[in-house]
């Protein structure tokens, strides 16, 4: 049971972050535009984030997928997700409207995701990250007495 849930959570996170990393990584310029929309970084740094962040997500996703270095990967995802959530809260507090009603929705995910929805999604991911972390520890402790 624990094992099944662990693998389910692990693969779920792997899927989400490989997908997210691939989407952003394949269009770094578009992603830089989305990061710039948060208006928290100096201009060029949006590109730095756009160039690196998707690869961190991808690598974490792949490690989770192959069930290697799971705890470091979870820790990094926890950190990333925390940053995302802080950014989203700051967006809400500043009342910034990221939706622009443009011809193209912002990126592949569409402009339909409101900051509130994104925050909720990240909260959900955070819970999955926590659950996976705890299950991983239990699983690695049980058989060997660690």
């Amino acid at each position: 049971m624990t094992r099944g849930l662990y693998h389910f959570c692990r693969l779920l996170l792997a899927g989400v972050f490989i997908y997210a990393g691939y989407l952003k990584g394949s269009e770094p310029v578009a992603f830089a535009g989305q990061v710039a929309a948060y208006q928290v970084l100096p201009y060029a740094f949006n590109y730095l984030v756009a160039a690196t962040l998707p690869f961190v997500e991808l690598l974490c996703g792949v490690l989770l997928l192959i069930n290697q270095k799971v705890r470091p990967a979870l820790l990094v995802l926890f950190g990333l997700n925390t940053v995302f959530m802080i950014a989203l809260v700051s967006l809400l507090l500043r009342g910034l409207d990221i939706d622009c009603g443009c011809f193209h929705p912002a990126g592949e995910e569409g402009s339909g995701t409101s900051p509130q929805m994104a925050l909720l999604r990240d909260l959900g991911l955070m819970i999955v990250i926590f659950v996976t972390w705890v299950l991983r520890l239990q699983l690695t402790r049980e058989p060997t007495d660690g």
């Binding site: 830089a32 730095l48 160039a51 690196t52 690869f55 961190v56 690598l59 270095k69 470091p72 990094v76």
Partner: peptide, 24 residues
């Protein structure tokens, strides 16, 4: 290990998008 993971991934991203970042 988490730190190494981030550094490796970020370096890969930077080298792949080197021109973009330098331009920016």
């Amino acid at each position: 290990e988490a730190l190494v993971l981030v550094l490796v991934a970020a370096s890969a991203g930077l080298s792949l998008n080197y021109t973009l970042v330098m331009k920016a």
